[in-house]
Design a protein around this nucleic acid. Structure first.
Lengths: 344, 344
DNA sequence: CTGAAAGCGCTTACAG
DNA sequence: CTGAAAGCGCTTACAG
């Protein structure tokens, strides 16, 4: 036999019709156990695999999910946010567990990506990952909803947003880490990160800080907040420099991400300031690097494992038209040395 | 119109046959420019996308590649070797550039994965990534070759191996970093890593060390080499402990990977030894963490960007039955502080 | 340059 | 429990 065997080849060898082969291989209860066994044995022997394209075409679904990772077009080719990388790992595993294949694609925010994967039947649904301007993304999300595309997004759960999001409870996380800083006696806490509606994750984290401050009878000083467009070390470093140049008196820095925090520590070191002696620094995400920073970075960890599972489970619910809702996962403070806390 | 539009819908609106629509959309020169334009406009307006399953079925290929990432079954759920992660990034981008989709799957070494993706027409070819016992993998690679599966592997380029590999020149890299250590006056260089044929990458790196030693008129001391089954910090740490416990006198450690090196530094620190004062430490891979280790780790960087491109280009050549060969990429020493070299 | 027709390899009502 | 047949949505010889 030349080429890959088809179900007709199996049928011929088994002395049954091709339809029966198909049924047997899909585990239909309509075929007798004995026949099924025989067919399975022959299929295995001939190294037969059902053609996914034919099967998908006929069944009108692909049993694959597409992961769309959005990156800022400006960012360096070689760098992927380590946080997304760990999400990727857990998403891949969750898909495998559910018997779905995973298509992965990096997208520029600027491109016109909507629904392409689903429209072309390459995937049954989309997982959207990656920060970017929320206000811009929102438009596209609306179009996805209109077109009936199945998708879930990782990110802030925003009031009245189009579609479903799985995200971490950024307000709670921000509040928890701010409370930790306050308990350690820090009072003048700077915040590095965009707090506009363009970036709901970061503004939620800031909101947490503000709440913690208020609960402690303190007020947030707007002069201590500085935007940071991208979430990279360099941006964090220059933001911290600016803050310092302005002459801001701070005894702690809450950076909206670990990468920003690491950059901030660099700027502090440059300025001859000791972390955590002079200034405590904390981040958000708990990327692998965080524990290697010097001093090791106190941060808030998101449950990426659960997040990945939830992302695919929720998407699968949508695909099957089962009820599905947005959910916020709890965040957990991880104390290391950069905050001047316990484990010094 | 209910449901997704098909080429028949477009044909109807354009007043042509469905065959013409197909040709126009695939850019066939057989259709007049004017007709093509009209069809394209209608397709766009109706948000038509050609059904990949139908197209793939008919054309007998899928225009997608599968990335199989092998992990040790023992490894923690949440951890992926950071080195592979950066490969993943460059592979994804390279695929996109070539117009191919990328299916990603984590495989346990133990599973019977061979050719499944290609046999089922889910992918036209396979990219194999991940260390594992080479002698075990070799068997499976042979089967892949027998079955005519298209694949490329990332890893050591071994004499007489089945299939094609893209890898870094581990001997050269090992030699270069060893020479650096020797130039710095280190003489008793320990090596952490499996040097058996089970792990050709690591034994090649060791071979580089041996060569450098010999070129300097020195001989490799077998007592200074210690196996490390997995490439993790913990394993590196315990390997170093053992070495120390044996009373080995060393002034430098060459760990076969950065993760092992970081673990080794930890063990050295525990033992009250200073890095690089008492013992210089170097790794291999240049993972992002390396620059964050304390002291920052001197290591050898592999060109993951080029590697990813080469992996997909080579695989595409194979798929198209064009000539393709294994290639070794040069490795580059990255000097940081852990070796006690210049940038101290 | 265009159309009618066959066929890619399955799955699944329909009939027995 | 099994088979004959239709059909999923394309692509591409074949004929004009």
């Amino acid at each position: 036999m030349k080429g890959k065997p088809t179900s007709f080849d199996i049928a011929y060898h088994a002395g049954v019709s091709q339809a029966t082969v198909s049924r047997a291989l899909r585990g239909s209860p309509l075929v007798s156990v004995e026949t099924r066994k025989r067919i399975q044995a022959i299929a295995k022997q001939l190294n037969y695999k059902v053609d996914k394209n034919a099967s998908n075409l006929r069944r009108q679904h692909s049993v694959t999910l597409a992961l769309l990772l959005f990156e800022d077009p400006t960012s360096d080719d070689s760098l992927i946010n380590p946080f997304f990388l760990s999400m990727l790992g857990s998403i891949t595993r969750a898909c495998a567990r559910q018997g779905y294949d995973l298509l992965i694609s990096f997208q520029q925010l600027s491109e016109d990506w909507h629904a392409d994967f689903q429209d072309s039947h390459k995937a049954d649904g989309l997982i959207l990952l990656g920060y970017g301007d929320y206000l811009v993304a929102r438009h596209k999300l609306e179009r996805l909803v209109e077109q009936g595309t199945h998708f879930v997004r990782w990110g802030a759960v925003v009031e009245g947003q189009p579609g479903i999001s799985i995200g971490c409870d950024n307000v709670q996380g921000g509040r928890a880490i701010a409370e930790h800083l306050l308990a350690l006696g820090r009072r003048r806490i700077a915040f590095i990160g965009d707090v506009s509606p363009h970036c709901p994750e970061f503004s939620d984290r800031y909101q947490g800080l503000v709440q913690a401050l208020q609960a402690a009878g303190l007020e947030a000083d707007p002069a201590l907040q500085i935007d940071a467009a991208d979430s990279t070390e360099l941006v964090g470093q220059s933001a911290m420099r600016q803050l310092l140049a302005r002459g801001a008196r701070v005894d702690a820095v809450f950076a909206a991400s670990d990468l920003l925090a690491i950059g901030a520590m660099r700027a502090l070191e440059e300025a001859g300031l000791n972390v955590p002696g002079d200034v405590a620094v904390v981040g958000f995400d708990d990327i692998p690097m965080a524990s290697f920073a010097s001093p090791p970075l106190t941060t808030v960890a998101q449950d990426t494992k659960r997040a990945g599972e939830l992302l695919v489970e929720t998407l699968l619910h949508e695909i099957r038209n089962e009820p599905a809702t947005s959910v916020m996962l709890p965040a957990r403070v991880v104390v290391r040395r950069s905050c001047g806390g316990t484990s010094s």
